[in-house]
């Protein structure tokens, strides 16, 4: 066996070991955001899947570079080397492009299925979801036809407030959601562009003035979570965070709603009627 071949086999074996160990590690690593909602679950699965797909290719490329440097010319006279080793090998290049292209296509197909088709996504065990720009449907009853609890997220410099249109339209400074519920977030803004980001629930959608951005997620775990602003919105962008966002049991949620209604009763008459968007104050703009 030639020295070159031996080196290639050795590096190949090292790569195989790295890839196998890496795959096991990636399978058990606790990737964020977790499983607090169906969306978080599928986001976690996607990140795990991508990491799992990326690691072997990443390590192979690194080993490829190291190997190429380590492999010595057996013959000191470079001129004796075949041209395909020196100036390019169209067949190798097209194979490379084909393989990378196939990987890319596979990733795109998996991503598209995850995204686009709720049924197919459910069949794969992944939650479907949608962010729709033009969803302005009026919601009636405690839950609409799809069985969703609508929650309006209103962003302004520098806080989020939350309205529950089907529960009397009261507004709260804290977000509380019942567990095992399909939630329909309606995200909008009163001034500049913000982004509502519930880290553990995998929810993220830009809050744009005069725009109703809808995000669907199903809560799955009781707990206290963190929400932040994801789009630079001025001075206290970083302070638009809240560590007290809660997912509670249905009974606790009803109790909380009742409390909030009592608290909000004196100010309800000052709140504008519920709407998917609110007209910002034009005086806030310009010089």
């Amino acid at each position: 066996m030639s020295a070159t071949r031996r080196l290639v086999y050795t590096l190949g074996a090292i790569w195989l070991v790295l890839a196998v160990i890496g795959s096991f590690v990636i399978a058990i690593l606790p990737f964020p955001p977790g499983a607090a909602s169906n969306v978080a679950g599928s986001v976690t699965d996607t990140i795990r899947l991508l990491t799992w797909a990326a690691w072997p290719v990443f390590s192979l490329t690194i080993i490829g570079v190291i190997g190429a440097v380590l492999v010595r010319r057996s013959d000191p006279d470079a001129a004796a080397a075949p041209a395909r080793e020196l100036r390019g090998n169209p067949r190798l290049a097209s194979t490379w492009i084909g393989v990378v292209g196939a990987v890319v296509l596979a990733l795109a197909i998996v991503g598209t299925i995850t995204l686009g088709n709720d049924d197919a996504a459910q069949a794969l065990g992944l939650g479907g979801r949608t962010i729709s720009g033009d969803n302005g449907n009026v919601i009636g009853g405690a839950l609409d036809e799809g069985g969703y609890l609508p929650v309006q997220v209103i962003a302004q410099q520098w806080q989020f407030t939350y309205r529950y249109p089907t529960l009397g339209g009261f507004e709260s400074a804290h977000l509380v959601l019942p567990n095992n519920t399909n939630v329909q977030f309606h995200i909008t803004s009163l001034d500049v562009t913000h982004s509502f980001w519930l880290i553990a629930l995998g929810v993220k959608g830009d809050a744009v003035p005069l725009h109703d951005n809808v995000f669907l997620a199903t809560t799955q775990q009781l707990g206290t979570y963190r929400s932040v602003c994801g789009e630079l919105c001025g001075l206290w962008h970083g302070a638009m965070d809240d560590n007290s966002m809660q997912v509670v049991s249905a009974g606790d949620f009803d109790t909380w709603v009742a409390q909030e209604k009592v608290l909000d009763a004196p100010i309800m008459k000052y709140l504008p009627p519920y709407s998917t968007t609110y007209v910002p104050d034009p005086a806030a703009y310009g010089s």
């Binding site: 492009i97 890319v104 598209t112 729709s132 720009g133 033009d134 830009d206």
Partner: peptide
């Protein structure tokens, strides 16, 4: 996540991933 039409996203996902083909060269 800005609220663009969901039907646009698969195309931009694919085109972005596709740019790794010439880059990998």
């Amino acid at each position: 996540v800005s609220g663009i039409a969901p039907s646009l996203r698969p195309f931009y996902m694919f085109s972005t991933e596709a740019i790794s083909i010439p880059t990998s060269i």
